[in-house]
Simulated assay, not measured.
Amino acid sequence: MDLTEESVHVHGPLSTVVADYYRSIDGRNLTSALACFAPDAVYRRPGYDAFVGFEAISTYYHDDRVISTGRHDIESIIENADAVAVRGSFRGTSHDGSPLAVRFADFWHFSGLTVVERNTYFDAAAV
């Protein structure tokens, strides 16, 4: 299910920020997608050192991200006072044309409506 389907219920303002991020990133609008991150935000994802600060996060998305195109299918979004948890899958294509498919979980931490920390986990055989 994608973010436009009725079965994904986005209930609060933080969930809306996160849902807008996925719509923007899938639409290849990096400016809009990255607008939610604080200047000192931290983003952690498997296979990389932590991206610390907006500039490091932006550099990753503009220069290092292996994904060319794709779509996040969100299964659930859970929000509390200052955090959002997301479970879903991603299908797309890398810059070299290879197909990509992975299940993921994202944990977003906020200050107000601004992302200060994001942690991504992939469902892949590792141990």
Results as ranks from 00 to 15, higher is better:
Arg91Glu: 14
Glu79Pro: 11
Thr69Leu: 07
Gly92Phe: 01
Val102Phe: 13
Glu75Leu: 13
Ser89His: 10
Arg91Tyr: 03
Asp82Lys: 00
Ser89Tyr: 10
Tyr48Thr: 15
Arg44Thr: 14
Gly92Leu: 02
Val84Tyr: 05
Thr93Asn: 02
Thr31Val: 08
Thr69Asp: 14
Arg44Glu: 13
Ile77Ala: 10
Arg28Ala: 11
Ile67Ala: 08
Thr31Asn: 13
Asp106Ser: 13
Ser32Pro: 01
Ala33Pro: 03
Asp82Ala: 12
Val42Phe: 06
Ala56Thr: 01
Ser58Met: 06
Pro99Gly: 08
Asp26Phe: 07
Gly47Leu: 11
Arg71His: 08
Ser98Pro: 07
Phe54Leu: 15
Val66Gln: 12
Ile78Asn: 06
Val102His: 02
Phe37Lys: 05
Gly97Thr: 03
Asp40Asn: 13
Phe107Lys: 00
Ser76Pro: 02
Pro46Lys: 04
Val66His: 04
Phe107Asp: 01
Ala81Leu: 14
His72Gly: 06
Ile74Ala: 04
Ala38Arg: 07
Leu34Asn: 06
Ile67Met: 07
His109Thr: 15
Gly70Asn: 10
Ser58Gln: 13
Ser68Phe: 05
Ile74Trp: 01
Phe107Glu: 06
Glu55Tyr: 00
Arg87Gln: 05
Ala35Pro: 10
Thr31Gln: 13
Tyr60Thr: 09
Trp108Gln: 03
Thr69Ala: 13
Arg28Phe: 04
Leu34Thr: 04
Val52Thr: 15
Arg87Leu: 09
Asp73Phe: 13
Ala56Glu: 11
Glu75Asp: 14
Gly47Ile: 14
Phe104Pro: 15
Phe104Ala: 09
Arg44Asp: 10
Asp49Gly: 10
Ser32Ala: 15
Arg91Asp: 12
Ile78Tyr: 08
Ser98Thr: 08
Pro39Phe: 02
Ala83Pro: 04
Phe37Arg: 06
Pro46His: 10
Gly27Trp: 03
Val52His: 10
Phe51Leu: 15
Asp106Gly: 08
Glu55Gln: 14
Leu100Pro: 04
Ile77Asp: 03
Phe104Trp: 11
Glu55Gly: 00
Arg91Pro: 00
Phe107Ser: 09
Ala33Arg: 05
Ser58Gly: 02
Tyr61Asp: 00
Tyr60Ile: 05
Phe51Pro: 05
Phe37Val: 09
Ala83Phe: 04
Ala83Ser: 15
Asn29Thr: 09
Asp82Pro: 02
Gly97His: 12
Arg87Asp: 00
Ala56Lys: 03
Asn80Tyr: 06
Cys36Gln: 13
Thr59Leu: 11
Val42Cys: 07
Leu34Trp: 06
Val84Gln: 11
Trp108Arg: 04
Asp106Leu: 09
Gly53Asp: 08
Tyr43Ala: 06
Gly47Glu: 07
Ser76His: 14
His95Phe: 10
Ala83Asp: 05
Gly97Ala: 06
Phe107Ile: 10
Arg91Trp: 01
Val84Glu: 12
Ala85Cys: 08
Ser68Pro: 00
Thr59Asp: 15
Arg44His: 09
Ala41His: 01
Leu34Gln: 03
Phe104Gly: 13
Leu30Lys: 07
Asp106Ile: 01
Asp40Thr: 12
Val52Trp: 07
Glu55Val: 07
Gly92Pro: 00
Gly88Ile: 09
Gly53Gln: 09
Pro99Ser: 14
Ile78Ala: 09
Gly53Ala: 04
Ser94Gly: 14
Thr93Cys: 03
Arg71Thr: 12
Trp108Cys: 05
Asp106Tyr: 02
Asp49Trp: 00
